[in-house]
Nucleic acid binder design. Structure first.
Lengths: 209, 209
DNA sequence: CGCTATTTTAAACGGGTGTTTAAAATAGTC
DNA sequence: GACTATTTTAAACACCCGTTTAAAATAGCG
């Protein structure tokens, strides 16, 4: 395997686990069994490495997500919000074939990206992969046309928050759930539980402000 | 003002803004106009300072929260989930009188605590202030008795995630919303919008797994 | 005032950080 | 096989970190 990929593989697990600021290049390179200077040689800087880690997932995910969402939009029957959110399941779970534990790693990385480094990663993702966002809002608009654009903006960000936060602490939550309820879930089980929640949240009745 | 309070006031704003790992003691002490060594003199270590920052808010918040929740539980009419979540509004907004921008600062800190430092703050809060959690689940149980304990566990954590994540990026979101919709919200406005969302999420119909 | 206890201060400590350098090793090509 | 281009390496760089030290300043009190 190339040095570049060895670094990426070591980096995304460590980044997901301990955050971007919480992971040093020395941890990454010793985990990857490569020289410290290799990161700056191949990627230029730590910041560029972070972008590369995210891009590897997004390049895999975003085409699948776009086609799944357009399938929902062009269906014969008007899709429900549950349909729209369910469109995310298959592409997300496919990341597990792309890389071991790919789904939870990616979602944890997403959570880290929103918390760390005051939003530079949010800017990177929304400017680099805008279609995912626009297609998603389009699908929601079809499923729930009464929702104003502003209300939708807020509810989609609440949804983003729910997913991202849940996944970034999913390992801890899965452990607690196993201890307290003797019910061993995996990441697919968590997704199964969060979809009805966010679908109902977005579908909440409109209140006057 | 005492050195101790000058440190606490500077620390919680910086912690909320840049995270615990992302804020150095030197930033804090120079912002507070005190000597670097004062942190270790008055608090012992950075970790203890973090606990002290959180405790200052929790000691103010948790009694109000407990009484608001018991009021909901002991009402004549069976409370709705919306009632339960609305019980949080007043105590949270009261933090603005306790300290400038107290509400959003505290909620941002909560979000940081869940992301940073692999959950030591979650442990600290749940062991130090367990009544908030038990009273809350009790209230939800009354409002929605059909929900199994396990399903409730998950939905309450989804809710926690929604709130915490939203608030930790609330400033950025408020800015975007103002630009795109010419609608200047404050933190109370965001809370007003998130309550229907989480109430509907927790109230979502039960699915079979 | 004089004495003790508390608090503040400047300086240093040991260690970790991302990044750069220049030499050594390897790969690719004529 | 010689020569260039790419990649890897060990070492150093300059800087920031949390913490500790011991002296100086201040406060409290009989």
């Amino acid at each position: 395997m190339s040095t570049k990929n060895k670094i990426l593989d070591a980096a995304d697990v460590l980044f997901a686990d301990k955050g971007f600021n919480g992971t040093s290049l020395r941890e990454i390179t010793s985990q990857a069994n490569v020289n410290l200077a290799a990161v700056n040689y191949h990627f230029g800087s730590k910041k560029e490495l972070i972008k590369a880690v995210m891009s590897r997932y997004m390049d895999e995910l975003s085409p699948q997500l776009e086609s799944a969402l357009s399938l929902v939009c062009e269906a014969e029957l008007k899709p429900s919000l549950h349909d729209v959110f369910s469109a995310f399941i298959a592409p997300l779970l496919n990341l597990n074939e792309f890389k071991e534990n790919g789904t939870s790693t990616f979602l944890q990385l997403l959570g880290r990206g929103y918390a760390d480094s005051q939003g530079f990663l949010r800017w990177f993702l929304t400017t680099q992969y805008p279609n995912v966002f626009t297609n998603f809002t389009k699908a929601v608009k079809i499923a729930y046309p009464e929702l104003s654009t502003e209300e939708m903006f807020w509810r989609l960000h609440f949804t983003m928050g729910t997913i991202v936060f849940t996944m970034s602490s999913s390992e801890a939550l899965i452990d607690i759930a196993e201890n307290d309820f003797n019910n061993k879930l995996d990441i697919a089980g968590v997704i199964e539980r969060v979809i009805p929640y966010v679908a109902a949240g977005v579908a909440a009745p409109i209140t006057n402000h």
